[in-house]
Amino acid sequence: MTRMTGRWSIVRLAVAAVMFAVAPLLIAQAPYEATMGLVAKIVYFHVPVWFMMFLAIFVCGISSGIYLFRERPAADRLAVSAAELAVLFGAMGLTTGPLWARVSWGAWWVWDVRLTLALILEMTFVAYLLLRKYGGPGSDKLSAGLALFGMFNVPIVYVSVNVWRTLHPSTTVVPTLGASMAGPFWWCVLAFLALFLVMLEGRRRLADQEAELDRLRLAYDEEY
């Protein structure tokens, strides 16, 4: 909470805000994707959100592993922050996804491989938060175990869902974006990345402060 981190987070926040302000301008000029028309513009938010969700899951899984095997509480606090962001960006993806599906395929939900994968991962990390909230003492280690499993599950779920059913244009939709589309797309990805980092840092600092509060309360109990 020293002044230094205060200023640094303001800077990052400003960067994220500016990038978001510019994003719609770039998106507007991008030519319409031939077959989808205007609705394709959702992709500029819908897909970067996946990237952030996977990034959050990856961060949560790795730091949970470190917490389990190296027993560093700081890693667990990072894992909690990342798990909350995984659920948040997952929620964003699972709301914008059906909107895109409704217009382009006429149904709110399609068993497309990435939507289904996102749904399963969202359930996994909501389970993580539920376990942490209702599991009682010791549930931090248990949820770390779940996060580790959740991370290893991503490729297997992807393959199994992919073979099972796929309607979505194959995953190469991102690279086929024309050069003029790629510009704003990657801009949005960076904007979301900035937002992700600001949130992660903010939530982690909050977790640190809560740990400090617990430590003080315990120190008080021990003293008196």
């Binding site: 205007l38 513009k41 959702i42 938010f45 709301t95 909107l99 217009v103 949130m199």
Partner: peptide
């Protein structure tokens, strides 16, 4: 019409953030 869906999608992302 795609426009309302586009707007809802953007605003959902913003409301959640």
């Amino acid at each position: 019409p795609a426009a309302p869906f586009l707007i809802t999608a953007y605003s959902i992302v913003w409301i959640l953030a």
